[in-house]
């Protein structure tokens, strides 16, 4: 329950949502978009973050769509993680999305909600950080824009107030060409936040790219780390160690794990994955 009165709106078109957001903001209110609602409800229980208006985006057709558009695979931000896994259009996304929270919760948590979560993890976004070409569709005051993911996400999201994510897209051919591993490592429990989720793909040229969730305050991919991981002249263990040494930020130190242990787990997992991918 959100313990204060809120207003609820369910626009049927993306443009209406944008207008509404602007109107409410101009009126001095604090609107929030939502899809599944899990995070907004959770946060409202412990924060007194002012949310005055809920704008439910699930009525917008584009946000619930999925499928193939020419050479592109796309997923609407409003699809539940369970639905994303069930569609299984991109196995690395399936594997990663299917390890978020628990089975029941994945019926409610949406792809967009997870990717834009205020939590550090955003696991479902990590697979999208790995291919060369990933586009997102954003509703903006200039209209619908399809832009490269990295234009709007570089660790943090860059969406202007009122803008929202409609869908994520990858090139089908590229997506399918990637061999992958996606391992979520936790303190102990299957259902828990990740100490680290390591998603690694190998492209047809043998180049390795790794994405990490839980390592730092945002999911991250580093070209330097990828270069070290791809250096076949070294052993997997040595490459993992070099990659860890080159991580752009130190590992988080929190309730789930100390920095040193998180580093150990990540390094071990990386080495394991490289061995598996190259066997």
């Amino acid at each position: 329950m959100i313990p204060w009165p809120v207003h609820y709106y369910r626009p049927d078109q993306w443009a209406d949502a944008l207008d509404l957001y602007q109107q409410l903001t101009r009126a001095g209110r604090s609107p929030r978009y939502y899809l599944g609602g899990t995070e907004i409800i959770t946060m409202a229980r412990t924060d007194s973050q002012p949310v005055s208006d809920l704008i439910d985006l699930k009525g917008i057709p584009e946000i619930m769509a999925h499928g193939q558009d020419g050479d592109w695979l796309y997923w609407g931000a409003g699809l539940s993680l369970a639905r994303v896994a069930e569609l299984d259009a991109w196995p690395v996304l399936t594997a990663t999305a299917d390890r978020v929270a628990d089975h029941t919760s994945r019926e409610q948590i949406t792809l967009g909600g997870n990717c834009l979560s205020i939590m550090p993890y955003k696991e479902a976004l990590v697979p999208f950080m790995l291919p060369d070409r990933v586009m997102i569709e954003v509703a903006t005051s200039q209209g619908l824009m399809t832009v490269p993911l990295h234009d709007r996400f570089d660790g943090s999201w860059h969406l202007a107030p009122g803008e929202f994510l409609l869908s994520l897209r990858v090139l089908k051919e590229e997506a399918r060409s990637l061999v992958f591993r996606s391992y979520k490592m936790t303190r102990l429990d299957w259902v828990d936040y990740p100490l680290v989720t390591v998603v690694v793909v190998r492209d047809p040229d043998g180049q390795i790219r790794a994405g990490f969730s839980g390592w730092g305050p945002h999911p991250l991919v580093s070209s330097q780390v990828n270069a070290l991981l791809s250096d076949r002249s070294a052993t997997p263990a040595a490459r993992a160690a070099a990659a860890i040494a080159a991580m752009p930020t130190p590992a988080l130190d929190d309730l789930h794990a100390s920095r040193a242990y998180r580093t150990f787990v990540t390094q071990h997992t990386l080495a394991l994955i490289i061995r598996e991918l190259e066997e």
Binding site: R187, L188, D189, W190, V191, Y193
Partner: peptide
């Protein structure tokens, strides 16, 4: 229960 972990099925 996100920070105080108890045994779940499967463990």
């Amino acid at each position: 229960f996100r920070s105080y972990k108890v045994l779940r099925l499967g463990e």
